[in-house]
Design a binder for these strands. Structure first.
Lengths: 159, 159
DNA sequence: TCTCCTTGGGAACGCCGACGCGCATCTTGA
DNA sequence: TCAAGATGCGCGTCGGCGTTCCCAAGGAGA
């Protein structure tokens, strides 16, 4: 299935405005509400739209500190990876975790209230992870870009 | 303003189901639809809920490769940072960019179709960024955790 | 040219969300 | 202990929205 410019416009709008009504979207894009509803439903059924989710203002919850954590394991054996991954998904302050190529084994993104709070997280969550050889933390001083979807997606009209 | 367990339950549900109807949420949480609507509106007005956005399946668009890019600048002068940041926000394949403490200056998260595509991005987007001294890329082999909101948020009932 | 298929648009119906009102509960102060 | 305000909840109404059906227009292929 190929997406045309109108489909991409719908996606672009819904990624910033998931609650927009059909009539609202239709007038912005230049379609009737019926036609728009059909296209939106198709985009959902085909899997382009995965879900609709509310975005929370994490600063409102005091989570203003982002930390990138590099973790190297004692060994890269399969059961070491499995054991680590089974535990890291349980860490409540971890929002992302990647298995990486190169020297570092895993990279985590952790959200904390402040540096003292990260010390607590390091003690109660990170240091309890199994098979860990080395933990190295870097603090984000500022966030310059934060997009859920790369803008390149919205410029790929096929027809 | 303090949030109780019901507020957190509403937030938890909306982060996975932003289009859930009031009646649907109400029965899950144990409230009437009116009471739920009021609480939801309060959460929006107080800024806890920032927006409602559709989540796209990026794999459906062929974006299956995540790359972490470390970028060091020639200098850390204020205008070097400003010049870099003004350009990096324009890169269509960049989804996250942090100014970091420690040795590396910036860390970017880039989405690409594959390794060849990342070579193109490196050539057309990253290498054109100003004041860059060094670029170091690491590929994510697998994603273990990907949460928009840390689960710790939903366990902070104040009353 | 005829037919099939796709896509857009209009109208009716049913449901949902927004709003105002009244009631119950809890708290504050004398 | 009692009164008064605040807070939270449920019910009912009304307007708007989504859903569905039907029909029209345009393009592709035999």
């Amino acid at each position: 299935m190929a997406l045309d410019r109108k489909d991409l416009a719908i996606l672009a709008e819904l990624t910033t405005n998931a609650r927009a009504s059909h009539a609202e979207l239709a007038s912005k894009i230049g379609l009737s509400s019926t036609a728009l509803a059909r296209r939106q439903k198709t985009l959902e059924d085909e899997g382009y739209i995965q879900a609709y989710q509310a975005t929370l203002d994490l600063a409102q919850f005091g989570l203003t500190t982002t930390v990138l954590v590099r973790i190297a394991l004692e060994s890269q054996s399969d059961d070491a990876l499995k054991a680590f991954e089974a535990e890291v998904v349980k860490c409540p302050s971890v929002v992302r975790c990647f298995l990486m190529s190169g020297t570092d084994d895993y990279i985590l993104i952790v959200l904390a209230r402040d540096i003292q709070d990260f010390e607590r997280i390091h003690r109660t969550e990170l240091s309890r992870l199994p098979r860990v050889a080395r933990v190295q933390s870097s603090f984000a001083l500022r966030e310059i870009v934060n997009r859920a979807v790369p803008t390149v997606v919205f410029g790929e009209a096929k027809r």
